[in-house]
């Protein structure tokens, strides 16, 4: 089975909940268990929050989400056209954050890495950031 969907929405914290619910609903076609649904909701929430806080620095912008179901896998891509990440490797270190004053725990990427089977982050300063994740459902 193959199925795809795309979503574009404003960079607003109100949309964090909207985005994760959409992704989780889309994934139900794979018959995920409750834990797998929680995983999808958490990683989408983390990635979208990153776009809002870091990518667009709480300012205006559009966030793009693409989900694809292929075989028994869900692929999730979340993209922003924000400021980008200067050092992706450093950003992915657990507890590292550039915004401690906003009480960021620095655990976003660590959660995405732990909860998904694969995580790829592409970023270019001044251009934006793309986060690609995939996970096999119903193992």
């Amino acid at each position: 089975m193959k199925n795809e969907m795309s979503l574009e929405f404003d960079s607003l914290s109100e949309n964090e909940s909207f985005a994760r619910i959409v992704a989780a609903s889309f994934a139900t076609q794979l018959n995920p268990n409750l834990e797998e649904i929680d995983d999808i909701k958490t990683v989408v929430s983390e990635a979208v929050t990153n776009c809002i806080i870091h990518g667009y620095q709480m300012g205006e912008g559009k966030i793009f989400m693409h989900c694809k179901i292929q075989d028994q896998e869900i692929h999730i891509t979340i993209m922003d056209k924000g400021v980008g990440i200067e050092d992706v490797e450093q950003a992915m270190e657990p507890m590292f954050t550039t915004r401690p004053e906003l009480e960021r725990s620095g655990m976003g990427f660590a959660f995405m890495k732990t909860l998904m089977d694969k995580l790829e982050v592409y970023s270019l300063s001044g251009v934006g950031t793309t986060v690609k994740m995939k996970k096999k459902i119903g193992e």
């Binding site: 994760r20 929680d38 909701k41 958490t42 929430s45 983390e46 929050t49 906003l102 009480e103 960021r104 725990s105 655990m107 976003g108 959660f111």
Partner: peptide, 8 residues
């Protein structure tokens, strides 16, 4: 539901 923002 809680994510890493809750932890922070």
């Amino acid at each position: 539901f809680m994510d890493s923002s809750g932890i922070g």
